[in-house]
């Protein structure tokens, strides 16, 4: 009976989705027209998506980073106490993996930093760069399963970058008249050079650091599921 209801549900859903297809066409809403027209002139960024993410919809990005922070803290909270929790058995890393991971760690971090520093010029940005940094951390965790990230440092990185994001937004509010405004504070610079786009590269670097720290903390908690307090208890 349940299977039948499920099948009917899926069938109705499929018909509904399929009936939508003829209605859909290329969208040319007011906002997208405005952003494609004014994005470059307003911000001098080559990448329009970055202009939308960081500047026009920067407040949404702040909320999004907050949601990521909330979900990571939720996962940490759920997995915090270790009693009766099955831990993944540490398996020994092969020599090949260990050497490769140690050799690749620094280049991967530098590559992630490159991606988020050039977020306003090339595809990429804070989120992608942060993910690359987190995969560098992942390699370290794969090689040495007992290694713990320095929680104090991660907390500081995360808090400072989040604080910097809000502070930049408030400075924009004071100088340019709206939250995260890109007017008046910094010169927009020459298009397609590294120092262009006003506040946009600064904010994207902060977002990159924050996302990298959060995703690394997420991987750490999935691998170990022992928080800071638990760790200290074990030592005492």
């Amino acid at each position: 009976m349940k299977q039948l209801i499920g099948s009917v549900f899926v069938l109705v859903m499929g018909l509904f989705l399929w009936s939508l297809v003829p209605l859909l066409g290329p969208s040319a809403g007011y906002l997208s027209t405005y952003f494609t027209q004014h994005g470059v002139a307003d911000n001098h960024t080559a990448n329009l998506v970055t202009a939308v993410v960081v500047n026009y919809r920067g407040f949404d990005t702040l909320g999004e980073v907050l949601v990521l922070f909330a979900s990571v803290s939720g996962a940490t909270f759920v997995l915090r106490r270790r009693d009766g929790l099955p831990t993944a058995q540490p398996w020994p890393a092969s020599e090949f993996l260990a050497t490769g991971a140690r050799a690749l760690f620094a280049p991967l971090v530098v590559f992630g930093a490159y991606i988020f520093v050039h977020g306003h010029l090339t595809p990429g940005g804070g989120f992608q760069g942060g993910a690359v940094v987190a995969s560098a951390v992942l390699m370290l965790l794969l090689v040495n399963r007992d290694r713990h990230l320095p929680h104090g440092l991660m907390t500081w990185l995360e808090s400072l970058s989040g604080f910097g994001f809000v502070l930049t937004g408030l400075i924009g509010l004071a100088v340019g008249g709206s939250f995260l405004s890109n007017k008046g504070l910094m010169p927009l610079g020459e298009w397609n050079t590294l120092f262009s786009g006003g506040l946009i590269p600064i904010i994207y670097v902060l977002v990159g650091i924050k996302v990298g720290a959060e995703l690394s903390a997420l991987l750490d908690v999935m691998f170990h599921s022992t928080g800071d307090a638990d760790h200290q208890e074990g030592q005492a």
Binding site: N47, V49, I115, Q128, A131, V132, A134, S135, L138, L219
Partner: peptide, 19 residues
């Protein structure tokens, strides 16, 4: 959408699978 493609490859394909 090269930005979205990078995000999907780095986060959707790699990190999610690892988790």
């Amino acid at each position: 959408a090269p930005d979205v493609a990078m995000t999907e490859a780095a986060i959707g394909a790699a990190l999610t699978t690892v988790i």
